[in-house]
Design a protein around this nucleic acid. Structure first.
Length: 321
DNA sequence: CTGAGCCCCTGGGCGC
DNA sequence: TGCGCCCAGGGGCTCA
């Protein structure tokens, strides 16, 4: 069963990153962890509802992660962008009209939003009845923007555009994996330069942006690379480069992993959840070779891989010694 | 500087 | 049946 007291979305709300999903192995409920595809899905859903609107006022619950958004009041939302797992709402000067000219203008502030593990960002006509509501951004339209976050790992912050001193990860974010900036040769060089397990490099956000635990496991499986490998060959890094693009693009097309909703007492699986090859599939047969999927712990995270398709490197990481 | 590991936080699952 | 421990994880932080 999903959390009984977790607020159900009302009709008209959009994009829920936090939903209940049936674990394929044990029937366990797991959270939808917002990674790049989930955040991008939310961005696309919210964009037509918030861009061009003015922020009338804001409210935040107490806590170090939700303060400092009151400077957003009085500003128009010029654009809603995404960087890695962060949402960036570009805000205009106080009092300026959200005209098409203003929308194309230069932002005066940025509202930075990170959903953490359980954050939900959605628009609604009225304040949702939730014990985990952390922030309200009232707009000059029929709907307001709400941030709900059960586990309090999310973050809201208003900064001057591009000034991310308080956000170390965002300040040092690597290239967007689905953009031309994500260069295969640079990616290979970065992997070779690090002595950390390849999965830890993917999760680090500095070499490539937006990769979380699910898509790290999926991409490494697709590329046939052991997640604990500390050295990758050029062919391997090229496969991983392509696998990351493929996995993320497919997940976006499916509106992200774990987007099932709890309705009328029934659980429905998310669109991309059923496409997962290794994540949360411990002891189930590998879709490629039918070997049982293994689960271990790498970089402090649960890590799933096929021990047959993703063999650990012997010495140099290149099968040819 | 870099990698490893802990911590934050909450609720579901499960062991005793 | 009920209590309480353990787990999940993104990113910030500390320590070696």
């Amino acid at each position: 069963m999903p959390p009984a007291n977790y607020p159900r979305l009302r009709v008209g709300e959009v994009a829920t990153p936090k939903v209940a999903v049936r674990g394929a192995a044990g029937g366990a409920i797991m959270d939808a962890m917002p990674e790049l595809p989930e955040v991008e899905t939310i961005r696309r859903d919210l964009e037509p509802h918030v861009v061009g609107r003015r922020i009338v006022r804001t409210w935040c619950s107490d806590g170090p992660r939700y303060g400092d958004i009151h400077d957003a009041a009085g500003r128009a939302i010029l654009a809603l962008r995404r960087r890695g797992k962060y949402l960036l709402a570009e805000l205009g000067e106080v009092g300026t009209v959200a005209s098409p000219d203003a929308v194309s203008g230069i932002a005066a502030r940025e509202l930075v939003i990170h959903l953490g593990m359980s954050g939900r960002l959605f628009t609604a006509a009225s304040r949702p009845d939730s014990p985990h509501l952390r922030a309200v951004i009232e707009l000059d339209g029929p709907e307001h923007l709400y941030f709900d976050d059960m586990r309090k790992f999310g973050q809201l912050l208003v900064v001057r555009p591009g000034e991310y001193e308080a956000l170390e990860t965002l300040a040092h974010m690597g290239p967007e994996p689905l953009s031309a900036d994500f260069d295969a040769e640079n990616f290979h060089r970065a992997l070779v330069a690090s002595r950390a397990p390849v999965k830890a490099v993917l999760l680090g956000q500095r070499v490539v942006a937006g990769i979380g635990n699910i898509y790290a496991d999926e991409a490494l499986f697709l590329a046939g690379i052991h997640p604990g490998s500390r050295s990758v060959s050029r062919p391997q890094s090229r496969r991983l480069h392509a696998a990351l693009k493929q996995v993320l693009a497919e997940a976006i097309a499916n509106r992200g992993t774990s987007f099932s909703l709890y309705r009328d007492g029934h659980l429905r699986e998310g669109n991309h959840y059923r496409e997962l090859k290794v994540y949360d599939r411990e002891d189930q047969p590998c879709p490629r070779c039918h070997t049982a999927i293994c689960k271990t712990r790498i970089a402090g995270r649960g890590t799933h891989f096929c021990p047959s398709c993703q063999k650990p490197p012997r010495s140099t990481g290149n099968g040819r010694g």
